[in-house]
């Protein structure tokens, strides 16, 4: 079973040379720490920066340079700033190669719910609906089950949707799965996790073909 850093490490392997990548808040943010150093990747933050760098050294923070999580950041050589409309032109216009975001639920048809729980304070969708509606390459990073032990990979989402038929790949603490027309196709198992355990933790249709390899991270 993976921890959050383990999920981020496994997703980092999906980041390819020359990619522009948008990272959501939470586990996705950790992915930046594990991307291979021998490839060129630029991180986009939807509040208006491409070429995001690490957090600033203490005392060097600038209130005018933050990421979409409102954290102080730095920029790397080649970075650029732009307005919000242009930022979403990059996203809707499919110029961003990979979007990594968290989810509360994913359905076997690729629907995703990650912004609202009825009866609880709703904070808003931010840029998530624009991202999932447009990105061609979306990876969801999340735990396989919720705190109560219930599956987050469902036949149909029960929470209000963020987008429909959009998720392509899911990396959880238990497995790597691809969303296909037939359902969740199991690609890899997390170290020490059996196919049976993954089946038990997946409410949606799980496709298991042949021997399922253990993931390497």
């Amino acid at each position: 079973m993976l921890d959050k850093n383990g999920i981020a490490k496994r997703i980092a392997k999906e980041v390819k040379d020359g990619y522009y990548v948008n990272l959501g808040i939470g586990i996705p943010t950790l992915v930046a720490n594990f991307v291979r150093e021998d490839i060129e990747v630029e991180f986009q933050s939807e509040n208006g920066v491409l070429g995001m760098g690490p957090f600033p050294y203490e005392g060097e923070e600038d209130p005018d340079i933050i990421n979409a999580g409102k954290q102080t950041i730095t920029t790397l050589p080649g970075a650029s700033f732009f307005d919000s409309a242009m930022s979403f032109s990059m996203i809707r216009g499919k110029h961003v190669d990979l979007t990594i975001l968290g989810a509360m639920e994913v359905a076997e048809n690729g629907d995703i719910a990650n912004w609202k729980i009825p009866g609880k304070m709703v904070k808003g969708m931010g840029g998530a609906m624009d991202l999932v509606a447009s990105a061609e390459n979306i990876i969801v990073a999340m735990m396989h089950t919720n705190r109560a032990g219930a599956s987050k990979l469902l036949k149909r989402c029960t929470l209000p949707l963020t987008g429909v038929n959009c998720v392509k790949k899911i990396v959880t603490n238990m497995a790597v799965l691809e969303v296909t027309k037939e359902g969740f196709k199991l690609l890899e198992r997390a170290p020490g996790v059996s196919v049976e355990e993954i089946k038990d933790a997946t409410e949606g249709h799980l496709i298991v073909e042949g021997e399922i390899p253990e993931m390497t991270i």
Partner: peptide, 12 residues
């Protein structure tokens, strides 16, 4: 004032 909402830094 330009208040910072989430001060995040790294150590030398």
């Amino acid at each position: 004032e330009k208040r910072i909402e989430q001060l995040t830094v790294r150590q030398h």
